[in-house]
Amino acid sequence: MSLLELNNISKIYGDLKALDNVSLSVDTGEWVAIMGPSGSGKSTMMNIIGCMDKPTSGAVLLDGKDISKESAKSLTAIRRDKIGLIFQQFHLVNYLTAVENVMVAQYYHSMPDEKEALEALERVGLADRAKHLPSQLSGGEQQRVCIARALINYPEIVLADEPTGNLDEANENIVLDIFKQLHKDGTTLVVVTHDPEVGEVAQRTITLEHGRIVKDALNANFKEA
């Protein structure tokens, strides 16, 4: 059984079909890149998978459970328990230190545990920046804090929308290396990008255009790390 399944979902804004009858299934441990030009519906799809939005029609199965009809309250709970989110703009709380930003996710999930949060920062190579405020960190470092925060509650699926969009080459590589490590550890990854280099390293690439999937292919060059 696949971890995530989209069955004929559409998202319609007025007469604009941001997603048009899309079906897709993602298995546990898969690393999927979603590509496509601007406005093709990538973020819309991410929001629906990430339980931050509901499709106009169609069913979204996460762990075999249809989440498209759930109330806002239970969507919050699903987000908290099953999903790790990584954003293009990082979205760190700017008055909290790096480690506190990770602990916030623990706090709303269960119990903040500073030791565990520090370990998570260590895994993304930021142990020595734990007490810094976001304004004292570089973009790449902020994105790594964001990744540490997304991973801290052991989500079933990690969603990243343009995670490297604001990063330079060197930082992009650091992030991709982290993704490779995550994939190796068995984490399910869905990464939205319009950067071919980021798309290429994934296991499978899905291309959207005008709200439809126009291509869904396994990546020939993909190497298990």
């Binding site: 931050m52 309250k73 919050t76 908290r80 979205h91 709380v93 700017n94 709303y108 925060r149």
Partner: peptide, 13 residues
Amino acid sequence: NELGLLKAIGAKD
């Protein structure tokens, strides 16, 4: 932004 983020990572209203 900050409050939206807190919601996204699972904070209840």
